[in-house]
Amino acid sequence: MKFRRKERDNVDIPLISLIDVVFILLLFFVVTTTFTRETQLKVELPEASSGTLPEPTELKQLEIVIGADSSYLLNGQALLKSDLDNLMRALQKESEGDNSLPLIISADGQAPHQAVITAMDAAGKLGFSHLRITTVEQPAAPAKP
Rank of each mutant, 00 (worst) to 15 (best):
R5E: 14
K6S: 11
K6I: 13
K6C: 10
K6F: 06
V11M: 04
I16E: 09
I16M: 09
D20L: 13
F23S: 10
F23L: 15
I24D: 04
L26F: 01
L27Y: 10
F28R: 01
F28D: 04
F29D: 07
V30L: 15
V30C: 10
V31N: 12
T32F: 12
T32M: 14
T33C: 06
T33G: 15
T33Y: 12
T34L: 15
T34S: 15
T36E: 10
E38C: 05
Q40E: 14
Q40C: 06
K42Q: 09
V43F: 13
E44A: 02
A48M: 09
S50F: 08
S50C: 07
G51K: 02
P54K: 00
P54D: 04
E55I: 12
T57S: 08
E58N: 13
E58H: 06
L59N: 11
K60E: 14
K60L: 15
L62R: 01
I64T: 00
V65S: 02
I66N: 00
I66K: 02
G67I: 02
D69V: 02
D69F: 04
S71N: 13
L74M: 00
Q77L: 07
Q77I: 15
A78G: 13
L79Y: 03
S82C: 09
D83A: 00
L84I: 03
L87W: 11
M88I: 00
A90V: 06
A90P: 05
E94K: 11
E94M: 02
E96R: 14
D98W: 09
D98P: 04
S100W: 10
L101F: 03
P102M: 03
I105R: 03
G109R: 13
A111R: 02
H113D: 12
Q114I: 07
A115V: 00
A119Y: 01
A122I: 05
A123P: 02
S129G: 00
L131I: 09
R132T: 02
I133C: 10
I133T: 09
T135A: 11
V136P: 02
Q138T: 11
P139S: 03
P142W: 04
A143C: 01
A143N: 01
P145A: 03
